[in-house]
Nucleic acid binder design. Structure first.
Length: 319
DNA sequence: AAAAGATGCAACCGCTCCCCG
DNA sequence: CCGGGGAGCGGTTGCATCTTT
């Protein structure tokens, strides 16, 4: 576990302990929950069981001690898809989204999304062709020389790209295009071999078709109409971190009217428009070598502002 | 091998909501 | 109806770990 932080909870309030939880504290908290259930958090401190605020206790329980948590395992492709989908509909309602993901907490979802957004921001800002010669740094991992700091620009959370990308069609670069093409293409079909949708019926909007019923696990499961953020789903948005097979979806996806993308130039725009899910299909965007990005092209964006209906007011909240 | 930078995640903070008297 | 307290939620921070140079 991490050692106590210096900056926070530094003892200005000796009565209340902050910082990382000790195993003994966890035990006490678990015992309390066993006896009283996951409530009466404030009484934990008032009874002198723990020098922690009720808030802190609740958070600890919800995020770490709950028995049904999937601790230490990354988001699966399906979970990723669900998060993306639901985020488009609900916005940053992480707690709500988390209810659709068994074993995941709102904090998990929040962190996952935050990480994803940062990754996306990096990718979109990274002029891929300028990679270092002779170096194979892994995709979006750290230390790109050309990388710009990911700004905390809320706009970056809204991804206006809606276009299926084309991978493996370009004649490519000088850098063993076969390898790059092969890598990219070879994994994409897996994206359509996604496992069945989650057992929970998702209120997923789908352009032209209804999705979300557990029986409908279409091959177009990655054709996700989302892209919004901060509670206002982008109409017809499609997350550029989701790869969409153009062959499987011959129709163009809705696009936000093209325009300056956060002030980024076309290089950036061309770069960050796809991702693959790990686990199921085996590859994520940032798993790809930089060479793979040489093959990402931006097809002519059809200028069609799609009137996308807002999500139905009645959200299936049940699980 | 060491240093620097990037990433992931646990935990805190402030605000809002809800319930109860 | 109003006020107070507790619970829940979303945003943010900062450290540990990992990756790259």
């Amino acid at each position: 576990m991490k050692r106590p932080r210096g900056g926070r909870g530094g003892g200005e309030q000796p009565a209340v302990r902050k910082g990382p939880w000790a195993p003994e504290e966890d035990e006490v908290l678990m015992r309390h929950v066993q006896e009283h259930g996951p409530r009466e958090w404030s009484s934990i401190r008032s009874k002198g069981l723990l020098p922690r605020t009720g808030k802190s206790c609740r958070l600890r329980w919800v995020n770490k001690l709950r028995p049904d948590l999937k601790t230490g395992c990354k988001f699966s492709a399906e979970e990723e898809r669900v998060v993306i989908d639901l985020q488009a509909q609900f916005g940053n309602k992480w707690a709500k989204i988390a209810t659709y993901l068994h074993g995941r907490t709102d904090n998990d979802v929040k962190n996952f999304w935050s990480t994803r957004q940062k990754r996306l921001a990096r990718l979109l800002r990274a002029p891929m062709p300028r990679r270092r010669p002779g170096k194979h740094s892994s995709g979006a991992s750290s230390s790109h020389a050309y990388e710009l700091p990911a700004p905390k620009n809320p706009c970056l959370e809204t991804i206006p790209f809606q276009e299926p990308i084309t991978i493996g069609e370009s004649s490519g670069s000088s850098k063993d295009p076969n390898t790059a093409n092969h890598r990219a293409v070879a994994h994409f079909p897996g994206a359509y071999g996604l496992p069945p949708p989650p057992p929970t019926p998702l209120p997923i909007m789908h352009a032209g078709a209804e999705r979300g019923s557990s029986s409908a696990a279409p091959a177009t499961a990655l054709l996700l109409p989302y892209g919004g953020d901060a509670g206002y789903p982008v109409p017809g948005g499609v997350d550029p971190l989701v790869f969409v097979d153009p062959a499987a979806s011959p129709e163009p996806l809705e696009v936000v009217p093209p325009g300056p993308f956060f002030g980024l130039d076309d290089d950036y725009v061309h770069a960050g428009r796809a991702t693959m899910h790990r686990d199921v299909c085996g590859v994520r965007f940032d798993d790809l070598p930089p060479e793979a990005f040489d093959f990402f092209e931006l097809p002519n964006l059809p200028a069609w502002p799609p009137p996308f209906p807002p999500p139905p007011p009645s959200q299936p909240d049940q699980l």
